[in-house]
């Protein structure tokens, strides 16, 4: 029988893809992740909120709503653990919507055999992160899977927030000439994780930058309101991926200057040794802000007085030229494209 399209036919054929198995790269936040989502996920579930493709959805009544899952390995790393990451991650996703986080849900998937002491340590740091952020966990769930079917602990958190009365966060408001602020040093989280991964471990004092950002974001909105057009937290895929997404969505070009990118000396050295480009390394405690050029200087000055933003810098601006592309001016005066990464960054051979 012929398969006719009707509202009652819920079958959807698998879209034409150039991959037939999910690889780690599909979770890297880069090109492959976008390919996977563009292959039909967004179409299949399309609606006015989802289609904005922001870190969270802005719902009627000024509510912001966001969810995130955490699968980091190892679960304890220099500067933090999966628990506080899960709290800060969702708090920050809400903050990137211009919202003040109000309530969180917390959901565990635990692997059989996990020592209770480890679980407890994670819980304690969750409580601490909630206290620091001032946001309570109000509902949750716990599931256990057989040994080998998970990796110790997976966490999902979902959050609801109230959009700041002066926030007008919308990629469509970003225009040519808008200035790009980065709130702190880049690449610390990803390098901290790598430093303790099996097979790559190296000694360093590099700590993850995981922290909640809603207070500093709220402070910016209190002072500069609609002069701030957009926030993004450059988590997986790093600053380069976030910039490419905005270049794509705004159909404008992005120009950044290598010399102005704030980075810790040790992190930079580790990137050199490992052959990684810090622009693609994950962050958990910094954000990008697109601001009106008239207030950029004041924004930066205020940010620099805060603890979270003490290393903040203006790293570039939006331009009408080369729409959809991110161009970096190298330290020595050359120019190059900063593309979206096709998969995970892999350490090089020599």
């Amino acid at each position: 029988m012929e398969n006719k399209k009707s509202p009652l036919n819920w079958e959807c054929p698998l879209p034409e893809l150039d991959f037939d198995v999910i690889t780690l790269g599909h979770g890297s936040g880069g090109l492959l992740t976008n390919k996977l989502l563009d292959s039909g996920v967004f179409d299949l579930l399309s609606n006015e909120y989802l289609d904005k493709r922001h870190d969270g959805a802005i719902l009627p009544g000024g509510l912001a709503f966001s969810t995130d899952s955490f699968v980091v390995s190892p679960i304890f790393f220099p500067g933090g653990n999966i628990g506080e990451l899960a709290i800060n991650g969702t708090v920050n996703d809400l903050a990137m919507c211009g919202a003040i986080p109000k309530y969180l849900s917390l959901s565990f998937i635990l692997e059989e055999g996990l020592p209770v002491a480890k679980f407890w340590d994670v819980l304690v740091s969750i409580r601490k992160a909630c206290a620091i952020a001032g946001v309570p966990v109000v509902t949750g769930d716990t599931k256990v899977v057989e040994r080998g079917k998970g990796d110790q602990i997976f966490i999902n958190t979902t959050g609801i927030g109230q959009v700041h009365p002066r926030a007008r966060i919308d990629p469509q408001r970003v225009g040519a000439g808008d200035v790009l602020l980065l709130s702190g040093n880049l690449a610390a989280h990803g390098i901290a994780i790598l430093s303790v991964r099996e097979g790559l471990s190296f000694e360093s004092d590099i700590l993850s930058d995981t922290r909640s950002l809603h207070r500093v974001v709220g402070g910016l909105l209190d002072r500069f309101g609609e002069g701030i057009k957009l926030f993004r937290d450059p988590t997986r895929g790093g600053v380069a991926t976030a910039l490419n997404e905005i270049a794509r969505d705004t159909r404008l070009g992005v120009e950044i200057r290598q010399d102005d990118l704030p980075i810790d000396e040790q992190v930079n050295s580790a990137c050199e040794i490992l052959g990684l480009d810090p622009l693609y390394v994950a962050n958990e405690g910094i954000f990008l802000a697109w601001v009106d050029p008239a207030i950029a200087g004041d924004c930066l000055a205020w940010l620099r007085q805060t603890e979270e933003g003490s290393q903040a810098a203006i790293i570039g601006e939006m331009v009408p030229e080369h729409p959809g592309k991110v161009i970096l001016q190298s330290s020595i005066g050359g120019r190059r494209v900063v593309n979206m990464l096709p998969g995970e960054q892999l350490p090089r051979i020599c």
Binding site: S330, S331, G334, R336
Partner: peptide, 8 residues
């Protein structure tokens, strides 16, 4: 290529 030297 990465440093944009070829064009210089």
């Amino acid at each position: 290529v990465k440093n944009g030297i070829l064009d210089l």
